[in-house]
């Protein structure tokens, strides 16, 4: 099940985000890593060291692109310059699938550079699905949309977040990048049962998963990507793997970044859940 048309029938294991402080370690020590996820926008540039580093990584590792500014949920037309540059980069990386967030972030040509939550309405479903289809048609690579963590909800909403996600991916016929940390953060901020969310996701559409750390404040929880993964998130991950099978998994660590070995070791904890799922899948095939 995890190798599906939304991740181009690949079987990637545990990856980590490619970050500047780790460049030297990766290129000198050549650690064994299943794959790296890059933030597309960091490499959608005209030249220089970032692209040279990326090429050196591409020589030895598999890379998957993850974006932060497609804003599938924007109410206005797509930015063609962004799309053109993104497509150019996909030719360089040969990413088997491409992910970005189920959110909005700009209006009238002004950018917030944030992943803002959408109202869960049928209008937003139609608009977002249409835009995802346009991107998919232009880029010609499977798209997976990631659920975001959020701190606000809208009066306009007509359904739950997971119902909205399901409606969008069905209408767009796209994949899901299931971020179990984001589900947990949002569940704390909005008072829903995160397990209900995980149990409601169409497992056959999950192309990839994200795990990460977060920060708990007195009255809300913030998605900070600056900690190891916490137990409640591992529980959600365990359940998600149980439902979806051994899916490509990525640890996000973007702030207070520790050594490469520490980040990689944290990511590899996911193997506790992936290995039994792989064994189970093998048993089923053999039977």
């Amino acid at each position: 099940m995890p190798a599906n048309r939304f991740n181009a029938f690949t079987d990637y294991g545990v990856g980590i985000g490619l970050r500047v402080p780790h460049y030297d370690h990766i290129l000198c020590r050549k650690p064994v890593v299943d794959w790296f996820e890059i933030i597309s926008e960091n490499y959608m540039i005209d030249g220089g060291r970032p692209l040279r580093m990326l090429d050196a990584i591409l020589d030895q590792y598999r890379v998957v692109q993850h974006g932060v500014s497609m804003y599938f949920g924007n109410a206005q037309p797509l930015n063609r310059d962004h799309l053109r540059r993104l497509k150019e980069l996909t030719k360089r990386t040969k990413t088997p699938w491409l992910s970005d967030h189920l959110c909005w972030g700009s209006v009238d040509g002004r950018y917030t550079h944030d992943l803002l939550p959408l109202p869960y309405t049928f209008e937003a479903v139609r608009n977002t699905a249409q835009r995802i289809r346009e991107v998919q048609d232009f880029i010609e690579i499977p798209i997976a949309v990631e659920n975001v963590s959020s701190y606000a909800e809208f009066h306009e909403s007509e359904m739950t977040e997971w119902e909205f996600l399901n409606e969008v991916v069905e209408a767009a016929d796209c994949g899901i990048l299931l971020d179990v940390n984001n589900i947990y953060v949002s569940s704390q901020n909005h008072g829903f049962d995160p397990m209900e969310y995980v149990n409601s996701v169409p497992a056959e559409r999950v192309a990839q998963m994200h795990i990460a750390g977060h920060s708990k404040f007195e009255r809300y929880t913030l998605d900070t990507h600056d900690h190891p993964v916490l137990d409640p998130v591992w529980k959600l991950y365990e359940r998600a793997i149980e439902r979806c099978g051994p899916t490509a998994t990525l640890l996000e660590w973007d702030d207070n970044i520790p050594s490469f070995d520490e980040v990689h070791a944290e990511a590899l904890k996911a193997m506790r859940f992936l290995e039994p799922a792989r064994a189970l899948e093998l048993d089923e095939v053999m039977a």
Binding site: T112, H113, D114, L116, Y151, A152, E153, F154, H155, E156, N189, H190, G191, R219, Y220, L222
Partner: peptide
Amino acid sequence: SYITPNPQLSSFERLEIYNRQYWFRV
């Protein structure tokens, strides 16, 4: 007028999280 409150945070406080994040980021 557009953001719902929750038992911990008012609509104002929920919006404020995004307002602060925007300025910290830029």
